[in-house]
């Protein structure tokens, strides 16, 4: 069974007006427990709509979202519970920071849930540690942090809820390469620590290749491709047809294969390609 499943979801914005726009049409996607699934697609492919449906911010006009096999909209009044179980980190989450101190801001969700202060404090520290925020920053105003620190504080605000499913919309957008690697690394560690299911929206095929187990490609509100990372990435022509590119390193590796170099393995990541080349060289006795 899937941890989180999208079943036959259709959503149309501004129905019956001149601005009518189909965001999603009959989308079926399953997210397996404990895996990192990448969600990729162009602007306007329906990614953001889908992501906001996963934690009940948008109610699908038809179809259902199943969390552990239960429709999240079965009891609309309890949608708040779903939102703590499925944590959503929106795009550029640093814009949601508002409280006087980082500590209070990270604990916002917990305070809304009515947790007592001692436990909030423990959870906040744990979440800050998860994203590598030093304890000395916790008493500062969130507006005094650097861009990267703000981003991490905002992500910590979601992690503090200890969501079973963590959904992130472009968590690394606008960060430098070091910041990207840091943030994505924290997610991987969160998943390992709490056995969470992670859904990662990204534009970067490199990030997908490196961090995800599975990939779902959306196009114009429909699921275009979905499967394990290697399955999807070896269909580079289809990806190219929707304007997506395979990672640079994979292009080089495939070009080598085409020229008769027998490479095999995880050619879509830099490490994988390096290992494949080293393996080949070893076999040839170099």
């Amino acid at each position: 069974m899937y941890k989180l499943e999208v079943k036959g979801v259709t959503h149309i914005y501004g129905a019956k007006t001149p601005f009518e726009k189909t965001a999603l049409s009959a989308v079926n996607v399953g997210f397996e427990a404990g895996q990192i699934t990448g969600l990729i697609g162009h602007t306007g492919s329906g990614k953001s709509t889908l992501v906001q449906m996963l934690n009940g911010l948008i109610r699908p006009q038809s179809g259902e979202i199943l969390l552990d096999g239960e429709d999240i909209w079965a009891r609309p009044k309890e949608i708040g519970r779903v939102r703590t179980r499925v944590g959503l980190v929106m795009q550029y989450p640093e814009y949601q920071l508002f409280d006087e101190t980082v500590c209070r801001d990270v604990g916002f969700a917990l305070r809304n849930a009515g947790m007592d202060e001692a436990e909030i404090d423990a959870r906040v520290r744990e979440a800050a540690e998860c994203v590598g925020l030093e304890a000395s920053l916790l008493d500062k105003s969130p507006f005094d942090l650097s861009g990267g620190q703000k981003r991490r504080a905002a992500i910590a605000g979601i992690l503090a809820m200890r969501p079973e499913v963590l959904v992130l919309d472009e968590p690394a957008a606008g960060l430098d390469p070091r910041g990207r690697a840091d943030v994505l690394g924290y997610l991987r560690r969160y998943r390992e620590r709490f056995g969470a299911t992670v859904i990662l929206v990204s534009h970067s095929m490199e990030d997908m290749a490196q961090y995800c187990d599975r990939v779902v490609v959306l196009r114009r509100g429909e699921v275009f491709l979905s499967g394990r990372v290697d399955e999807v990435f070896y269909r580079s022509e289809e990806l190219a047809s929707v304007g997506l590119d395979i990672p640079e390193v994979m292009k080089i590796a495939l070009a080598l294969v085409e020229r008769g170099v027998p490479l095999s393995g995880k050619l879509y990541t830099v490490d994988g390609a390096r290992d494949a080349i080293l393996e080949l060289l070893k076999r040839r006795g170099c």
Partner: peptide
Amino acid sequence: EETEKIMNAQKARGAD
């Protein structure tokens, strides 16, 4: 749009 985004972000953190 911005208001909506921020509202959603806070709702995702359990704001009511």
